[in-house]
Simulated assay, not measured.
Amino acid sequence: MIDLDDTDRAILRTLSRDATVSAGALGRKLGLSQPATWRRIKRLEDQGIIKGRRLVLDNDKLGFGVTVFLGIKLATRGRVSLEDFERAITAIPEVQVVHHVLGRFDYRLRVVARDLPDFERVLRRRIMTLPSVGEVEANVLLSEETFPGPIG
């Protein structure tokens, strides 16, 4: 674990809420100069604590009003490799996130679609046609809140 002080944690909390905050604005908020703030951010990046900054798109405004979480259990482990499944599933544009997990399902996916008929099309024509797909469970997202998580 990397040793973080209170200022490092404050930087991480602020950037996790809004990664577009400038080093100058962040420094003013924390009582640091812009160069000192930038050096701290750079150190956090160099240490791998900050892995990158992402653009967050509004799926609703882009016309994708339905988000579904899929649990997928592969049919037979020996016939298709995990790498082959991952390569095939990530080639489907509606699949936003793929998690290889331990438990009842082998994978958890986040899938977006324009509406429920569009999701059904993606499920039937793209996902269920993969030779390795066995059991599938779908959960439709009703609402979502995101939190930065612990920074300690």
Rank of each mutant, 00 (worst) to 15 (best):
D5V: 05
R77S: 13
I89Y: 01
T146H: 07
L44C: 06
D60S: 11
E94M: 02
R104L: 13
V122W: 00
R28P: 00
D6Q: 14
L123D: 04
M128R: 15
M1E: 09
G134I: 10
R104M: 12
L116H: 07
L74V: 14
L123C: 06
L70P: 00
E120N: 10
I127F: 02
R28S: 07
L57R: 15
R53N: 09
V56G: 02
D46N: 11
P150F: 13
E145Q: 14
G71T: 08
V56K: 06
G71R: 04
Q34R: 15
P148I: 05
Q34C: 03
G134Y: 08
L32K: 12
R40S: 04
L116P: 01
I50Y: 05
D60L: 13
G52I: 11
T129F: 04
V101I: 15
V136K: 07
Q96L: 14
I41F: 03
D118Q: 01
V97E: 14
A88R: 11
G65Q: 13
T146S: 14
A88F: 01
K61H: 12
T76F: 08
G63A: 11
R124E: 10
S16D: 09
G24K: 09
G63F: 13
S81Y: 02
W38C: 00
R77D: 10
D84G: 05
E137G: 12
I41T: 02
R110Q: 11
L4E: 05
H99Y: 15
N139L: 14
L82D: 10
T20C: 02
V80R: 02
D118G: 03
R43G: 02
P150W: 09
T14K: 08
T37D: 03
L44K: 06
K51H: 08
S33P: 05
L130N: 03
T20D: 08
L109F: 02
M1T: 10
D115K: 06
V80P: 00
R125S: 12
G103P: 03
L44G: 03
V98E: 01
F69W: 12
L32T: 05
V68D: 04
I72R: 00
R40H: 06
A91V: 06
E83H: 11
G48M: 05
K42P: 00
Q47F: 01
T90Q: 09
R13S: 14
D6H: 09
W38M: 08
T146E: 13
P93F: 05
T7L: 13
R121E: 10
G27A: 06
E120F: 03
K29H: 08
R13F: 03
R28H: 06
R121Q: 10
A23P: 01
R87L: 08
R121C: 01
L62I: 11
E94F: 01
F69C: 07
F147M: 13
V68T: 09
